[in-house]
């Protein structure tokens, strides 16, 4: 059985990508299971989807802990702990990353011995990577080696047909280009042996102890501890204040920021909390003197890494 996991952000079309691959497998005669994983997360937040394909009906269900192929639509998710991109990855796992950096850099950075392939990033705002799903799926189909160009094309038409001819054409082009790009690596994804009942790791079951309801009721005794959740990781665009033009007005940005992620310093200047700014850009749109502008988060981070001020 093939086990494939897609990682992306809410809004990047990972559900559609997984469905295109699922349908392509299905058209190829496979039994298939595909599903997105929804949680409480919204647009920009890490999400994943999975596909299973086998020649016989599939009994396994739920999350894929060990994948044969991991597809990362957005390389900025790799270091995000909650995204779980590297969960269960071993030397057998093939990783496909949408990234400008080389496979060698990723192998070294992640200290993995398996195969890594990259697809070049084409646009700056990652929330707007409308075709990334099709691109990744095209490349994945070739890496799997069991899906024909025809099945891939037909799957795209079936899954995106409702969105109109132009959308289908654009996605077809992206997917088939990526498909051809991976020609040399066709079929490099392999499946794993079935888990044997003869030799398995026993689950470390535990007896749940009785605990006083003071502890065991679902109550939170902390105040405003949601600040420990870094929703800044959802951001694909970063608002940056140009203090030379900031008029220190009456803090329009601070009041309008839906998340309350802009506070005002003792000097009376607004200060954006990048740990929590989700990148909605309301402040950019509303700043009276237009002193806040948007830059791609990638670019901002790269500049930060260089030690410069974004």
């Amino acid at each position: 059985m093939y086990r494939i996991r897609f990682h992306g952000r809410g809004g990047q079309g990972m559900k559609t990508a997984s469905r295109i691959l699922g349908t392509a497998f299905f058209l190829q005669g496979y039994e298939v299971q595909d599903a997105p994983r929804y949680g409480a997360e919204r647009r920009g937040a890490p999400i994943f989807a999975y596909v299973r394909a086998d020649e016989t009906p599939i009994n396994e269900r739920g999350i894929i802990t060990q994948a044969d192929l991991v597809i990362v639509a957005d390389d900025s998710l790799v270091p995000v702990p909650g995204a779980g991109v590297l969960a269960g990855v071993d030397k057998h796992t093939v990783i496909l990353i949408n990234s400008d950096e080389s496979p060698e850099v990723w192998k070294q950075r992640l200290n993995i011995s398996g195969k890594v392939f990259t697809l070049p990033v084409e646009t700056e705002d990652r929330a707007e990577l409308r075709f990334i799903g099709a691109t990744c799926t095209g490349a994945a189909a070739k890496l799997l080696g069991v899906i024909t160009r025809e099945s891939l094309s037909q799957a795209i038409e079936e899954e995106l047909g409702d969105l109109g001819h132009a959308v289908v054409e654009k996605n077809l082009h992206k997917a088939l280009t990526a498909f051809d790009l991976m020609k040399k690596h066709a079929g490099c994804v392999s499946t794993m042996e079935k888990t044997s009942a003869a030799n398995y790791t026993r689950p470390a079951w535990v007896e749940l102890p009785f605990e006083d309801a003071r502890i065991s009721a679902p109550s939170i005794h902390a105040a405003a501890n949601s600040v420990q959740v870094k929703t800044g990781l959802w951001r694909t665009q970063r608002p940056v204040i140009d203090y030379e033009h900031c008029s220190g007005c009456w803090w329009v940005c601070s009041t309008f920021c839906p998340d309350g992620a802009i506070n005002v310093t003792e000097q009376g200047l607004p200060d954006i909390d990048y740990d929590h700014c989700k990148g909605c850009m309301v402040c950019v749109a509303q700043c009276p003197p237009h002193a806040i502008h948007a830059i791609a988060e990638e670019v901002a981070q790269a500049e930060e890494a260089k030690g410069g001020q974004a």
């Binding site: 405003a224 600040v227 959740v229 009456w250 803090w251 601070s254 839906p258 309350g260 909390d273 850009m281």
Partner: peptide, 22 residues
């Protein structure tokens, strides 16, 4: 006027509400 509004906010950040939630 707007200047009378608080500029540090009591409600904690880090909630899962959508980006741009009115």
């Amino acid at each position: 006027r707007m200047k009378d509004l608080p500029s540090t906010h009591l409600l904690g950040t880090g909630t899962p509400m959508c980006s741009g939630c009115g």
